[in-house]
């Protein structure tokens, strides 16, 4: 009888502790959320008005993004090559992460580190190369939008800015290029820098390169490689300015792409 009452008491105590913990977490989370937003707004205020920094531009961006690494999926690359090359497809490991798939004819598909694909294959109405690549990308955990050369690649709902596929038909032959990181899976790594810190980084880059006022900012991933066997998705901000644009890593603040008009 006593033990039955004790159980109710334990349940009541556990409930109370859980409620206190949950309320505390919610309070601290809300406070941290406010602090992060405050630091973002403070950073925006520091930037010169002529650069067009507005808090609203950055508030729509994810608070944090993580980098992801993934083991390069060589069987997936081989499967893509086999599907688009006619006849028997022989593979060669050239070293340095370069794999070449050849047919007895002139067909040749080459995969490099970082998901880089180039090749020349026989034109064939029955094989839609983009569909083959899209299917392999989806198996690798990437999402796609659009089709053909217009296809866009995403990871976790965020676009991979430099991933693409493109082809050109030259009569009997089709040349193809692209960047699609086929991976056996993606492992989450370190967390990127805060939005407030990145605003100050943006200000310095715009000043250094004379890029003028910001027109738009969006969060993207940038496909790179850690080594010949490992893909890397670096979280970044892609910024369009009056006199050009750039993509900057939110991990180490390095400029990944830059174009000045």
């Amino acid at each position: 009888m006593e033990w039955k009452k004790a159980k109710w008491l334990i349940i009541a105590m556990l409930l109370a502790v859980n409620i206190v913990l949950a309320v505390n977490i919610a309070y601290r989370y809300t406070r941290a959320l406010g602090a992060e937003l405050d630091s973002l707004r403070a950073a925006v205020e520091i930037a010169p008005e002529s650069y067009g920094f507005e808090a609203a531009l950055f508030e729509q961006l994810p608070r944090y993004l993580y980098e992801y690494t993934g083991s390069r999926d060589l069987p997936a690359e081989a499967a893509v090559a086999s599907a688009i090359v006619h006849g028997e497809c022989k593979s060669t490991d050239e070293g340095g992460g370069v794999f070449i798939y050849n047919s007895p004819g002139v067909e040749r598909v080459l995969f490099r580190r970082g998901g880089n694909i180039t090749g020349i294959v026989s034109s064939d109405e029955n094989i839609i190369i983009s569909d083959v690549i899209v299917a392999a990308a989806q198996k690798s955990g990437l999402q796609t939008l659009g089709e053909g050369d217009e296809v866009e690649f995403y990871y976790d709902g965020t676009p991979i800015s430099n991933a693409y596929y493109s082809h050109t038909v030259y009569g009997e032959h089709t040349s193809l290029t692209g960047i699609v990181p086929f991976s056996t899976g993606w492992a989450r790594g370190e967390k990127g820098r805060s939005r407030g810190e990145m605003v100050l980084v943006l200000k310095n880059i715009i000043e250094d390169h004379g890029l003028g006022a910001i027109k738009s900012v969006k969060a993207v991933y940038f496909a790179e490689s850690v080594d010949s066997k490992t893909h890397l998705l670096t979280p970044a901000w892609q910024v369009e300015c009056q006199n050009g644009g750039f993509t900057v890593s939110i991990m180490d603040k390095s400029v990944l792409e830059l174009s000045v008009n």
Binding site: L21, N24, I25, R28, Y29, A32, A35, E36, R63, K191
Partner: peptide, 15 residues
């Protein structure tokens, strides 16, 4: 909840 509480306390980030 205790683990989450410690993470929220130690980390100043709004995860």
């Amino acid at each position: 909840l205790t683990v989450c509480f410690f993470i929220v306390t130690v980390s100043s980030d709004a995860l």
